[in-house]
Design a protein around this nucleic acid. Structure first.
Lengths: 96, 96
DNA sequence: TGAATATATGAACAAGTATTCATATATTAA
DNA sequence: TTAATATATGAATACTTGTTCATATATTCA
């Protein structure tokens, strides 16, 4: 298969978004529905700042979506590609 | 979803294997069937050394498989998880 | 055996990245 | 307006990573 360099870079960036354990855990949490930044941070024992920085990257790659309500921002998975990538990846690591 | 830290790390490592444009291009080439290290390197304009280093990581994550024949080593995708992850990722970047 | 070829690997350097800390913005309540 | 709360962001630092270069291992051929 011949792959345009641009596509290769975009794909790499997408997978790069999933290449960190903190982000994976954030995504795993969001599988259960939307959560505020603080709730995510509390659930994972991370600072809000660290979570916010990570969410920014996930947002830019359209893996999560933000919904503002009052002074809170609720994050959720953007579409089912994310959950499917996650499930497929889990499948791969479970049984080699 | 609650995810064991070990699984999170394993998942992150898996996606990390796919988080580089060179590795993505290597995998894209292997979609067409097995290839020697030199053939991959020539096809991508990379040095054999760089390709070999990358293949090592892909091998460790069981994304590619090596078959030795004479003094050449032919690489191929390890199982269809790889192609499916690839296709799903491509799908995501194509139409947001 | 020795020369040539194919791949692998260790070390080193450059470039990228995750976290922390301090600060900024935005919203609500008093 | 002021204080408090929720999130975002810039800078700095520590850590990781991809490539190159030199060298090593393995295989074939003469």
């Amino acid at each position: 298969m011949k792959l345009a360099e641009l596509k290769a870079i975009q794909l790499a960036e997408l997978f790069s978004s999933l290449s960190d354990a903190s982000r994976i855990r954030i995504i795993a949490q969001l599988m259960g529905g939307e959560m505020s930044v603080r709730a995510i941070a509390d659930g994972l024992g991370m600072t809000e700042s660290a979570v916010s920085h990570q969410l920014r990257g996930l947002r830019q790659m359209r893996l999560v979506r933000a919904r503002k309500s009052g002074r809170q921002v609720f994050y959720s998975l953007d579409d089912d590609h994310v959950a499917r990538l996650f499930a497929l990846g889990l499948d791969h690591v479970q049984h080699g």
